[in-house]
Nucleic acid binder design. Structure first.
Length: 194
DNA sequence: TAGGCCATCTGGTCCT
DNA sequence: AGGACCAGATGGCCTA
């Protein structure tokens, strides 16, 4: 199951527990209010990670409401609302897992000094370029090794495990003398995206 | 100030 | 039935 990669303890996301707990113990004030909007991530950050949902302030006028608030107000009550809140927490956890994966991917992609964080789209693009460059580089090394040893025996390819042996494979059209330009191309691509 | 990027909520759909 | 996944909507933050 994919969920295995996203297993996160409750202690890592205490807000999940707070939400559910709050929904259970004070569903009237929690569910019937528009506090979901108040309990946004940024509120948590700016308020010093105070993860206790704000109580509705009757004196405060409604300056803006989003669709989610409207939905929360009109679509679900009681147990339904409880399930929605739990689903929101799971979705938040899932997205955090996804973002963590993006961070790990960024950490293995070469980047320029003083470069700002790659966007998600750019991260995927750079990863694709980087993998291609590494594959072609490795293909060149393998070919060179085969030429040096004269080895033509069958060997399982590290680059393409389901393909034939490396040494009889023609591989990509790139020659090893172009390898140094691969990474400059990557760097150029990185620059272009900024 | 507009545009890009992001986090979050939400409802629908698929899967176990 | 419940969880995972997805896409749309919304609003906040940041930068040119």
């Amino acid at each position: 199951m994919a969920a295995k990669a996203e297993v996160v303890s409750w202690t890592e996301y205490p807000e999940d527990f707070s939400l559910l707990h709050q929904a259970q113990i004070s569903s009237k004030t929690w569910i019937a209010s528009n506090s979901l909007h108040d309990f946004s991530r940024r509120d948590g950050e700016t308020a010093g990670l105070s993860l206790v949902p704000k109580l509705p302030d009757p004196s405060a006028g409604i300056t803006h409401r989003n669709k989610a608030d409207d939905g929360a107000k009109t679509s679900h009550f009681g147990p339904q609302r409880h399930r929605r809140v739990a689903a929101n927490a799971r979705e938040r956890r899932r997205m955090h897992g996804l973002n963590k994966a993006f961070d790990e991917l960024r950490s293995v992609i070469p980047s320029l000094e003083n470069e700002k964080k790659l966007s998600k789209y750019d991260t995927l693009q750079m990863a694709q370029i980087y993998i291609t460059e590494l594959s072609e580089l490795l293909a060149g090394v393998v070919r060179q090794d085969c030429e040096d040893t004269g080895d033509k025996g069958p060997r399982r390819s590290l680059l393409h495990p389901h393909h034939g042996p490396d040494c009889v494979q023609t591989g990509s059209a790139h020659s090893s003398d172009g390898e140094s330009s691969h990474f400059s191309d990557l760097e150029e691509s990185l620059t272009r995206t900024q």
